[in-house]
Design a protein around this nucleic acid. Structure first.
Lengths: 230, 230
DNA sequence: TTTCTGCGTTGATATATATCAATCAAAAGG
DNA sequence: CCTTTTGATTGATATATATCAACGCAGAAA
């Protein structure tokens, strides 16, 4: 299972997302009230429905966030790369998680006590502001996802997924997928079989090249066109 | 078109959502930097893609928020009843609206200058906190909507819609719909025809009763069961 | 009045996508 | 080593839902 890790917030401060507006004393406060943990691929960081009394900041690896459903089909609502705070509305609403977070690669994350975070939001207005900006960004991304999954056909949805993956999640082209085909399907709101057929079509049309887990985007303009038309 | 209205924030303070943590002086600040407007049914309050440099608070009526799409199918992401601040991430991200807001009934709303709101967030931590809570609530609602629209069949989706309408949007049973069938379809992520067929099925099964715009929920348990099963 | 327009309704048909089933390759485990 | 499991792929088929078309009705407009 998860392994404990020891890192000071000050060290990873440089590129640390919303936390870089904090003073040293505030970061130390977080240091004293966080757990730094390593997860193996496939391990659950938190689960939909479970109590949410800490905030999670991803410090390395890749995390998928998905909504579970009775019929066992999941919908991935977002991927998180370091260094990034995972927005989960739960702590501010009903203290339960509304999505499940799972490590896709070996991942390290800091679990920060809810009380400390909330206190920082109340005492440091700059931090509160960054926090709101962060939430807003995630909301926009959520709007895009809803829009894609409910209003577009399979081709448009897969195009959206590919454009979301590069750049952003993967930053070389070609890149080596750490996501399974099922993950890509869950990210595109369709079955694995449908996803594979669409990828094959894209490959036949020379829009992408895919061999196993090596994926290359060849014609980005074409992908954007497909995403736009739906 | 829109008609100007004159109301003091202090007057509608009592039930005024996130604003009730503000001091009198702060409310006066808003008073001086807001426009209070009346919209007729069907009128646009703000439009997706347009610049977003004010915040909107609904003070009477009913507002639908929807994502537009090229093929002219809209997806309603939420309805807002007074008194409620409409969360739009735009002002914190790219200063553009990401949804369109339209009045479904005669509606009055206050348009509050972005700068003033942001300043209040920066100076009043209590307000910032309420603001974050509000955003979080809307995010949860967004998760529910995504979950419903992407993972459930038509029956489950319409059940979700009906349960969302009562209670919450309408608070008597039976209630008089101010939404059209098309609105209900946009809220359920399907075509008008499909929606009508599902409503008919529910009526035949004695789950609801619907005559024109009068809708009564007869068997709520059954609806919840259908919503759960998808 | 008549005409027109928008909304609601119903039926017939088309189609996008899921489901089911089989196969293959690679990885994991004994 | 062989066996088992897991993920990827492909084809055949089923089905949920959209699309298309027609009609009724009520309110608005001429």
């Amino acid at each position: 299972m998860a392994v404990l890790l020891d890192t000071k917030c000050l060290v990873c401060k440089k590129s640390s997302d919303i936390f870089n507006v904090l003073k040293e004393s505030e970061l130390e406060k977080i240091d004293c009230n966080k757990a730094s943990i390593i997860y193996k691929p496939g391990e659950i960081i938190f689960k939909q429905g479970a109590p949410a009394n800490y905030f999670v900041c991803v410090t390395s690896g890749l995390v998928k966030l998905y909504i579970e459903h009775v019929n066992s089909r999941n919908l991935i609502v977002g991927l998180t790369r370091p260094i990034n705070y995972i927005f989960e509305p739960g702590p501010f609403v009903d203290h339960h998680h509304h999505v499940t977070a799972v490590a896709c690669e070996e991942t390290s994350a800091c679990l920060i006590d809810e009380k400390v975070m909330k206190q920082l939001i109340k005492t440091n207005t700059e931090f509160a502001n960054e926090f709101i900006k962060k939430i807003s960004l995630q909301s926009v991304s959520l709007f895009n996802r809803i829009s894609s999954c409910t209003q577009k056909h399979v081709y448009g949805r897969v195009a959206d997924t590919l454009l979301y993956l590069y750049p952003g999640i993967y930053n070389t082209n070609p890149f080596l997928l750490s996501l399974t085909r099922q993950d890509l399907a869950d990210l595109s709101g369709m079955t694995k079989e449908s996803l594979i057929r669409v990828l094959k079509k894209f490959k036949d049309d020379n829009i992408i090249n895919i061999e196993g887990n090596k994926l290359e985007i060849i014609n980005r303009n074409n992908l954007e066109e497909i995403a736009r038309k739906g």
